[in-house]
Measured scan of single mutants.
Amino acid sequence: ENVVSAPMPGKVLRVLVRVGDRVRVGQGLLVLEAMKMENEIPSPRDGVVKRILVKEGEIVDTGQPKIELG
């Protein structure tokens, strides 16, 4: 899985990584606000952040790609 998608609709509060960052499985990639709760979205695997496809403040839909890992 190279693309991390939104598990639920919500607002991107914070992006916790930058392009080029090495990430580990379970590491937080971003914080999504859904139903007035903050949810940290974890990396599904070890890898390197290739692209960030969302911006802080953006509203995302379920299944929308957010971060691409290499």
Results as ranks from 00 to 15, higher is better:
E1W: 14
E1P: 13
N2H: 14
N2G: 10
N2D: 12
N2R: 10
V3L: 13
V3Y: 14
V3D: 04
V3G: 04
V3A: 07
V3E: 06
V3W: 15
V4T: 04
V4W: 04
S5W: 11
S5V: 14
S5R: 15
S5C: 15
A6K: 04
A6W: 07
A6R: 03
A6S: 13
A6T: 06
A6Q: 04
A6M: 12
P7N: 12
P7E: 10
P7I: 11
P7C: 12
P7Y: 10
P7D: 10
M8Y: 15
M8V: 09
M8N: 07
M8E: 05
M8Q: 08
M8F: 15
M8I: 09
P9K: 13
P9G: 12
P9Y: 11
P9F: 10
P9C: 10
P9Q: 10
P9W: 11
G10P: 03
G10T: 04
G10M: 07
G10Y: 04
G10L: 05
K11G: 01
K11R: 12
V12E: 00
V12C: 07
V12W: 01
V12N: 00
L13R: 05
L13E: 01
L13K: 09
L13V: 11
L13Q: 04
L13N: 03
L13A: 05
L13I: 12
R14A: 07
R14Q: 06
R14S: 05
R14H: 06
R14F: 05
R14L: 06
R14I: 06
R14N: 03
V15D: 00
V15T: 03
V15W: 07
L16D: 00
L16G: 00
L16C: 10
V17G: 00
V17M: 02
V17Q: 01
V17W: 00
R18T: 09
R18Y: 06
R18S: 11
R18W: 06
V19G: 01
V19Q: 07
V19K: 06
V19W: 04
V19H: 04
V19A: 07
G20I: 04
G20H: 07
G20L: 06
G20E: 03
G20Q: 04
G20V: 02
D21Q: 14
D21A: 07
D21G: 04
R22L: 12
R22Q: 11
R22H: 13
V23S: 01
V23W: 04
V23K: 02
V23M: 02
R24C: 12
R24E: 09
R24W: 12
R24T: 12
R24F: 13
R24P: 01
R24I: 12
V25H: 10
V25F: 12
V25Y: 12
V25S: 10
V25W: 10
V25Q: 13
V25I: 12
G26L: 05
G26K: 05
G26D: 04
G26Y: 07
G26N: 07
G26W: 07
G26P: 01
Q27F: 05
Q27T: 08
Q27V: 05
Q27R: 04
G28T: 15
G28I: 15
L29I: 07
L29Q: 00
L29T: 03
L29F: 02
L29P: 01
L30K: 00
L30A: 04
L30H: 00
L30S: 01
L30T: 03
L30F: 13
V31S: 03
V31M: 05
V31E: 00
V31I: 13
V31L: 08
V31T: 07
V31F: 03
L32N: 00
L32H: 00
E33G: 09
E33Y: 15
E33K: 08
E33R: 08
E33M: 12
E33A: 10
E33S: 09
A34R: 09
A34S: 13
A34C: 14
A34I: 14
M35N: 15
M35Y: 13
M35D: 14
K36E: 14
K36G: 15
K36S: 14
K36R: 12
M37L: 11
M37E: 11
M37T: 11
M37D: 07
M37W: 08
M37N: 09
M37I: 12
E38G: 05
E38F: 10
E38P: 09
E38T: 11
N39Y: 15
N39G: 06
N39D: 05
N39E: 10
E40H: 10
E40Y: 13
E40D: 06
I41Q: 01
I41N: 01
I41V: 09
I41D: 01
I41C: 09
I41K: 00
P42H: 10
P42K: 14
S43W: 02
S43G: 02
S43N: 02
S43C: 10
S43F: 02
P44I: 05
P44C: 06
P44F: 06
P44T: 07
P44R: 04
R45K: 11
R45W: 14
R45T: 10
R45L: 12
R45A: 11
D46Y: 08
D46I: 06
D46W: 08
D46N: 12
G47M: 03
G47A: 10
G47V: 03
V48N: 04
V48D: 03
V48R: 08
V48Y: 14
V48I: 13
V49C: 05
V49N: 01
V49R: 01
V49G: 01
V49I: 12
K50I: 15
K50W: 10
K50R: 12
K50E: 08
K50D: 04
K50M: 13
K50Y: 11
R51D: 05
R51C: 10
R51T: 09
R51M: 08
R51Q: 09
I52H: 01
I52V: 10
I52F: 03
I52Y: 03
I52G: 02
I52E: 01
L53V: 04
L53E: 02
L53N: 04
V54F: 03
K55S: 11
K55T: 11
E56F: 06
E56W: 07
E56H: 06
E56L: 10
E56K: 09
G57L: 05
G57V: 03
G57C: 08
G57P: 01
G57R: 03
G57F: 06
E58R: 02
E58G: 05
E58W: 09
E58P: 02
E58S: 09
E58K: 03
I59P: 05
I59D: 10
I59L: 13
I59Y: 15
I59C: 13
I59E: 11
V60E: 03
V60F: 04
V60N: 02
V60M: 04
V60L: 06
V60A: 03
D61H: 14
D61K: 15
D61V: 15
D61W: 14
D61G: 12
D61N: 13
T62V: 13
T62E: 12
T62I: 13
T62A: 15
T62M: 14
G63Y: 08
G63L: 07
G63N: 10
G63D: 08
Q64L: 05
Q64S: 08
Q64V: 08
Q64I: 07
P65K: 08
P65C: 08
P65L: 09
P65W: 10
K66Y: 15
K66F: 15
K66V: 15
I67E: 02
I67C: 06
I67P: 02
I67L: 09
I67G: 02
I67D: 02
I67R: 02
I67M: 09
E68G: 04
E68C: 14
E68Y: 13
E68M: 13
E68P: 03
L69Y: 04
L69N: 01
L69C: 04
L69A: 03
G70W: 15
G70A: 14
G70C: 15
